[in-house]
Design a protein around this nucleic acid. Structure first.
Lengths: 134, 134
DNA sequence: CTTTAACCCTATAGATTGTATGGGATTAAG
DNA sequence: CTTAATCCCATACAATCTATAGGGTTAAAG
């Protein structure tokens, strides 16, 4: 299950995508369209800025804006930043790999099947972008 | 990410599947093959019994056994029992549906995409069974 | 009919993660 | 110099995950 962070993020990002090219959009405007905690959204957008999804401008007239066109921002990128691995197990994760300490990865049948699940999810999540969300 | 419960469950279930037809297998034997907390595994197997995956026999010489052949028990069934929804959002879950109170399901683009993810996962998880795990 | 080995049931503890909130610092427009 | 915004970090609160505890019930075997 997706946690709230990416869910809120997607709402904010669609608003930012629709506003593309018109300069920075402040949180106050985003929240007007999607009612939610300003402070919580702030931490989310900050995280997206640190991961090069968003840019920001401080001070009066400032706000956030997309660093790339919406069709170049996949759902997978956002989910990985805010929720971590897309794979059902760390031992089959592409971006968050960790060895499992209590199963043998070579003989373990589960990780092979979970890798299939990972690929099935990724096929959707890397091909779908913010553009599909608008 | 899968929680520990289904992970442990899959290990126990493969042992039970290999033992199929030879009568009930006690927890003590399962744990000998897969070291883990006896008590924790007990609560897991109990949950599977209540959901008609396992049968059990009490008393000396008792234990657990599969109620169906391994090829009729899909990974999806086990995950739903122990981890809940397979869909990334409740509002697109087939077995655990809940209306989202803060988004419009008709106009919300996200749930359409998350339904695609759900279907991609289910395609693997309903076709793969305990048989594939052995 | 007692011992023993097993499952049955419920409560709860401890750790981790998810969901925010608060307060102040920094920046820049007007 | 005032105002409106982001930036940063700490922390509170709640929910879930992981596991443990302890006693109850059942049934086979001697």
């Amino acid at each position: 299950m997706l946690s709230k962070k990416p869910q809120y993020a997607f709402r904010a990002l669609t608003t930012l995508a629709r506003h593309e090219g018109n300069g920075p959009l402040p949180i106050s405007k985003i929240v007007k369209e999607h009612p939610m905690s300003v402070k919580f959204l702030e931490t989310i957008l900050l995280e997206l800025r640190k991961n090069d999804i968003l840019g920001s401008k401080k001070g009066k007239g400032g706000g956030y804006f997309l660093l790339k066109p919406p069709e170049e921002i996949s759902l997978a990128q956002i989910i990985r930043i805010l929720d971590g691995p897309i794979a059902p197990l760390k031992c089959v994760s592409l971006n968050f790999y960790e060895r499992c300490d209590d199963c043998n990865e070579i003989s373990c049948g589960l990780n092979k099947l979970m890798a299939e699940v990972r690929d099935a999810k990724l096929k959707v999540l890397t091909n779908r972008t913010l553009r599909d969300l608008i």
